[in-house]
Design a protein around this nucleic acid. Sequence first.
DNA 1: AGAATAGTGTCTCTTAGACATTATTAC
DNA 2: GTAATAATGTCTAAGAGACACTATTCT
Lengths: 237, 237
Amino acid sequence: MPGISADAVILGYDGKDIKALLLKAKEVDYWMLPGGFIEKEFDLNTAVHRIVKARTGLEQLYLQQFQFFGKADRNAHQKEHLKSLHQLSLKARTWISQRFITAGYFALVKIDDVLPKADLFSDRCEWIPVDQLPPLIIDHHEILQTALLYLRRQLNYLPIGLNLMPEKFTMPQLQNLYEGIMKQKLDRGNFQRKILKLDILIRHEKLKSGGAHKAPYLYQFDVEKYNEKVKDGIGFV
Amino acid sequence: MPGISADAVILGYDGKDIKALLLKAKEVDYWMLPGGFIEKEFDLNTAVHRIVKARTGLEQLYLQQFQFFGKADRNAHQKEHLKSLHQLSLKARTWISQRFITAGYFALVKIDDVLPKADLFSDRCEWIPVDQLPPLIIDHHEILQTALLYLRRQLNYLPIGLNLMPEKFTMPQLQNLYEGIMKQKLDRGNFQRKILKLDILIRHEKLKSGGAHKAPYLYQFDVEKYNEKVKDGIGFV
DNA sequence: AGAATAGTGTCTCTTAGACATTATTAC
DNA sequence: GTAATAATGTCTAAGAGACACTATTCT
């Protein structure tokens, strides 16, 4: 009985790295994306919300479909990962190979709000930096990379800052997030100028202390203005 | 038995309007997108190629998945279109309501290469300008509009010119295409300057004649250079 | 000649990008 | 003070956008 499954690329940002929430499969040295089958009586988005909630504990979250992955591709990848499949138990193997087609979703979450929980087929659930990925089962690596590509291309139309940053944050933190997604360094001065010009930030007079250097200002998003800008594309290369 | 279906938004451009290939449903005054069920032994992309080939006769085409539409949304729309459903034969109604989930694909084709063919549930298959759409069944209007939105947002990463324009074309024709997709008028001079600077066009010395005015040059894409630019985003607003 | 439309040139204002300068903090 | 990092300012070159002018074609 073939079915429709969904896999969620749950992304978070800790002020330094962009991380994905991954599950360590039991019995083998492979990791996987949180996912599951879509039951027929549920609609797709509802089902994925349910799946993500089970791993993160989050009720409200920014969730977006980005691509479906069909059978042919999946089989090609299964060949490459044949070894990993053979090592799995019959139950787990059946669970995986039953996947006829899978929906790729990504979620943007505030990393500190999440309480990672493993599922039946995994023994750990952890945040892992997306540029230091361990081996993933079947086509999960491709799904994750596709999600990141989509994120990069849709950058102007996605509320990444709002959903990934903590309530209050510094300008260098925000810049680091953009650099991580765009995979390139940006000029500090120009970044600051461009972002401030958008007029979507509220500056707090309190400074953050900690290092042996000038303390940065704390900022917060003006949610209304932010959402307004995102609709027509938040002008940022 | 619920199943997965696919609907194709097939887009063409006749030098004046952006058009979609639509089917006129039998028995009722509604039109619909070409589509069909995905058989389990096929993979998704192959199946959609087959569907599009059946309506257009085209073997090779630019095809891209853009979104899936789940059950809840679809039911909401069915409510709105209840009248249209009641007027359908049992067979057609069953065919439509069996759709559990549908894959939205769009295809970019050279309009003159297409030989439209109706299917079993339709009596006509025609090109219709996307800004003059007739009533469409279920959520097909939404699917079509979503495709156009996607097209607009991904403009820089899609080879629209290459796939929608005829082999040889004029600059005003190309500008008109961009204006149609972006839904806004562009300055002639600036458009020309920007496009020529991309260095992806080959100019032919032969001019096109016809009207009581200066004849425009004919251009052709330098396919290799074009594809190179599209990969990193063809710099155009 | 005149109407219509294509092609090219020019001007200004904004912006991007590189980089320099100043400010703040802990040691 | 020095080291480290944040914030702000400045300069230049490139680009966007508005618009004017020239070119070509048919009636």
